[in-house]
Design a protein around this nucleic acid. Structure first.
Lengths: 251, 251
DNA sequence: CCGCCGATTGCGTTCCACGCAACGACTAGT
DNA sequence: ACTAGTCGTTGCGTGGAACGCAATCGGCGG
């Protein structure tokens, strides 16, 4: 483990919330400001941070570049994009693409709602495993033993009155999801929002990602949400087809 | 300057192009693989990289998180988004938002074209200063002396037959841009694409960013492109208003 | 079963990153 | 204008962190 690198990563994390001064960063990281200065200089030389003004630093363009270069090289994202955009335009609601990697579910693409109500989510943000529709889809696609291990490890933090709070209930829900081919989040994460999600599959039928539509309850009741399922499934199928084709040509 | 941090940043950069093995990374960075392993472990503990399989590493989710958290906290981007999206839906063409920071012009948002023809651009990518419409808008907004210093420092790499290749021509072009309030890229960057761009202004009339529309020449000729200018200017005005700009403050 | 390749670990050494303290630049208050 | 205070910056000596080496482990294929 590298101490200086670790400290630098802490700095980057702090800078993600907005410009910071040397002292703020030093205090946050718990090190001498001289040390922070040196680290920032190195980060600056590689364009990972840049000076905002005389005393503020902010994240630099290299980070955006890296992140988007890497996102762009994900076949799922590129392949699914047209289908998702179409779904977004058709329904007018927020559309997410999420994938499971490194033990967590992460949003890798997002199409904003046309309505004023916006969700607090973001590309790169982690989705809770126990109370989001995308996570249910992705976990439901795993082998049973892995599913169970994961279910046992989850900390079932209750977010709303509907949040699933036990491993048993979670596993039962996953079975239902696998059965019917799509997942629901019935206001289990946020009181005012419910979602439906479906899997995007690759060449050999493996689940690569999950698409979801999130709708404020004031705009659509439960039946209205379910009425979106056919469109969702069509989108998922179309995205899957796009992945089936490119997956063959890709390494 | 921190040696280990610097090496780690090189590793991240290498990983942005896709998964790599320990040896590949060690060779690329020119250090012993033990060193690489240690750095990767630190990066992994902070979710900046993750293991792809037994012998491949890839960028982790923390990077996406950071980048998008930071992008999200940019007021311009959030404020301008609705206007840009509307322009994208209205015209069907690629819409970019770019800003000048740290001596370079960077795309901070992008709305894809509805047509099959796609531009090779990306959020986080740097835009060339001498042959893109957004850069012209942003540089034209600077104080004359700064403009001249910048113009003198540019390496005028010719991209097409129309690319501006001298500082004199560039400065003349900037003057014209400042005069008429929008910029053109008449196939100066890519043969088949031309663009128009306009400034997004803040409260005190200062230029915060630039919006552009990029159109393949096969879809729209030069006059057709110019016909988009009113829509572009309306969008820019609407985005400016969202950023606190009042017409009274106009310079 | 063995040989090969790449990841991993233990270890001694070196040099690099650390904090201290002094300095410089700038601001604000009187 | 002077001064006090704040924050960024620099030089330096020291300790420990990061380095590369070499040995070991582990998986895969022959």
């Amino acid at each position: 483990m590298s101490q200086s690198l670790d400290r630098a990563l802490v700095l980057l994390d702090a800078l993600a919330d907005g410009p910071r001064t040397l002292d703020q960063l030093a205090e946050h990281a718990g090190v001498h400001k001289t040390t922070v200065l040196r680290l920032l200089r190195t980060l600056e030389s590689r364009r990972f941070v840049q000076r905002d003004d005389a005393r503020h630093y902010r994240l630099g363009t290299a980070l955006f570049d890296l992140a988007n270069r890497s996102l762009d090289s994900r076949d799922v994202r590129r392949a699914a994009e047209p289908a998702l955009r179409e779904l977004n335009e058709l329904t007018g609601h927020t559309v997410h693409l999420a994938s499971y990697e490194g033990g967590e579910v992460v949003y890798i693409d997002k199409f904003e709602s046309r309505h004023q109500v916006r969700m607090y989510s973001r590309v790169g943000k982690r989705a809770a495993l126990h109370c989001t529709a995308v996570a249910k889809v992705l976990v439901a696609a795993m082998a049973p033993d892995r599913r169970e291990r994961l279910a046992a490890a989850i900390d079932y933090v209750p977010m709303t009155a509907n949040t699933i709070t036990t491993a048993e209930a979670y596993l039962a829900e996953l079975a239902a999801v696998a059965e019917r081919g799509y997942a629901l989040d019935d206001s289990e994460h946020e009181d005012f929002i419910h979602c439906v999600a479906a899997p995007v599959r690759g060449q050999r039928g493996e689940v690569l990602a999950a698409v979801s539509v999130s709708v404020p309850k004031v705009l659509l009741d439960h039946d209205g949400l379910l009425a979106l399922v056919p469109d969702l499934l069509r989108t998922a199928a179309s995205a899957s087809a796009a992945c089936g084709h490119t997956a063959a040509a890709q390494t």
